[in-house]
């Protein structure tokens, strides 16, 4: 078992849902496949999908919904 980190490539605001009235992309405990979208980072009013480079189980998020993120900051951890 190894712990992998998904980092934000961009500064901005992290969102765990595609829209405020829609369910979260992923929740802790979910199985994640390579390429799965785990959230969005909004930078200057443009939205960028954050995808997982790993497969495994989502341990949890290190950034809350709608919170600011810095480039390189860890957004989520995955166990595989």
């Amino acid at each position: 078992m190894a712990k992998q980190e998904i980092r934000s490539p961009l500064p901005g605001t992290f969102y765990r849902k595609p829209a405020p009235d829609q369910p979260e992309f992923k929740a802790p405990g979910d199985n994640i496949a390579k390429g799965d979208v785990i959230g969005l980072v909004e930078v200057m009013k443009s939205f960028h999908e954050i995808t997982s480079e790993f497969e495994g189980k989502l341990i949890g998020f290190l950034v809350d919904n709608e919170e600011p993120v810095a480039p390189g900051q860890v957004l989520a951890e995955i166990e595989n």
């Binding site: 961009l10 901005g12 605001t13 909004e42 930078v43 200057m44 009013k45 600011p68």
Partner: peptide, 13 residues
Amino acid sequence: LYPGYQIPPFYDS
């Protein structure tokens, strides 16, 4: 703008 200004990512460009 001014020299040394960090553009915040939260608003329009």
